[in-house]
Structure formats: structure tokens, C-alpha cells
């Protein structure tokens, strides 16, 4: 197993697979989290009705995802890519759920 992993071809294949998962899956999770967070923040910050905030956040999420996809394949450091996407995902989802909990008073 270790010998297979040490071959240059195998290492390249693994890094490509990790990048595909990070850019496509991680990029989606991060943009969905940012949409959820924006839908909670916009009604307070911009005094938008909740339904309008939901639609605006969700439509912009496609462009955010597109940007993350492009960056996901352009970022030279795979480690930095994974770290930043994880950070954005945790902060956005955590923030969105936190605001829901705050609003319901729990």
C-alpha cells in the first residue's frame, strides 16, 4: 500500500481527487452555508422581508459557487484550499444556525 502511494502517478491522482471533492463538494457546502447565513442577516441588516432575503441569497449563491469553483481549481496550495473552505463552511453554517437559535430565543 505504502509503495503504491509513493509512486508519483498515485500521488498526483490522489491530489486531483481531493481537489475535485474540495472544489465541487466543499465549494457547494460553503456557498450553501453563505446563502443560509445571508438569508438570516439581510432582513436585519438591510430590512428586507425574509422571503426576499431568501431568494436574493439563493440566487447569488450560484455566482459565489462559480467563483469558489474557479478558485478551487486555480489555488496552487491544496492545503490552503481545504482549510479556507472548511473555515468558510464552519463559520457560515455555524452563524446561520446560531442566528436561528437566537431568533427562537433558545
Amino acid at each position: 500500500m505504502q509503495r503504491i502511494l509513493q509512486r508519483p502517478g498515485a500521488r498526483k491522482a490522489i491530489s486531483v481527487i481531493v481537489r475535485l471533492i474540495a472544489a465541487i463538494g466543499g465549494g457547494y457546502a460553503a456557498s450553501a452555508g453563505l446563502a443560509a447565513l445571508a438569508a438570516r442577516v439581510l432582513p436585519v441588516a438591510a430590512a428586507m422581508p425574509p422571503s426576499e432575503a431568501v431568494v436574493l441569497a439563493s440566487m447569488l449563491a450560484f455566482l459565489v459557487y462559480l467563483g469558489l469553483l474557479i478558485w478551487g481549481f486555480a489555488e496552487p496550495s491544496l492545503v490552503r484550499l481545504c482549510l479556507i473552505l472548511t473555515a468558510v463552511g464552519v463559520v457560515s453554517w455555524g452563524g446561520a444556525f446560531g442566528l436561528v437559535r437566537l431568533a427562537s430565543g433558545g
Binding site: G33, S58, A96
Partner: peptide, 12 residues
């Protein structure tokens, strides 16, 4: 949008 990015409406 509501199929592809359900996170916002589902959470709200």
C-alpha cells in the same frame, strides 16, 4: 434555485 440551494429557505 429552491432545489439547488435549499439551505436558505429551509433554515428560514
Amino acid at each position: 434555485w429552491s432545489t439547488y440551494f435549499p439551505s436558505a429557505w429551509q433554515l428560514t
